[in-house]
Amino acid sequence: MSSKVRVVRARYEKGVLRPLEPLELREGEEVLVKVERLREREKMAEKFYGKRGPAPKELLDEFMLEAEAQ
């Protein structure tokens, strides 16, 4: 697996977070999980949308992760 950080959507069902896309992880591998409600992310995007023109969601996710890491 690449060492690159990925943002993936997940659904909480019966006490378990289930990713909505495949993850390239080895069995038993540990990862860090940041829980953020999708609606909160959408509100933030709505607040800043159009301030400097549209940007792809993937780019915004990458910027958000970089900012949080600092």
Rank of each mutant, 00 (worst) to 15 (best):
M1S: 15
S2F: 07
S3G: 15
S3T: 14
K4P: 02
V5F: 07
V8Q: 02
R9V: 06
R9L: 09
A10Q: 10
A10W: 06
Y12V: 00
E13Q: 12
E13M: 04
K14F: 01
R18K: 15
R18T: 14
P19A: 04
L20G: 14
P22F: 00
R26E: 12
G28F: 04
E29I: 05
E29T: 10
E30R: 15
L32S: 12
R37S: 08
L38W: 07
L38M: 06
R39V: 05
R39E: 13
E40S: 13
E40N: 11
E40W: 05
R41W: 12
R41E: 09
E42H: 03
E42Y: 03
K43N: 06
K43Y: 01
E46C: 05
E46N: 11
K47G: 01
K47A: 07
K51A: 03
R52Q: 06
G53T: 09
G53N: 04
P54I: 00
P54D: 05
A55E: 15
A55P: 00
A55I: 14
P56V: 00
P56M: 00
P56D: 10
P56G: 00
K57N: 04
E58F: 01
M64F: 03
M64A: 12
L65K: 03
E66F: 11
A67G: 11
E68V: 02
E68G: 12
E68D: 10
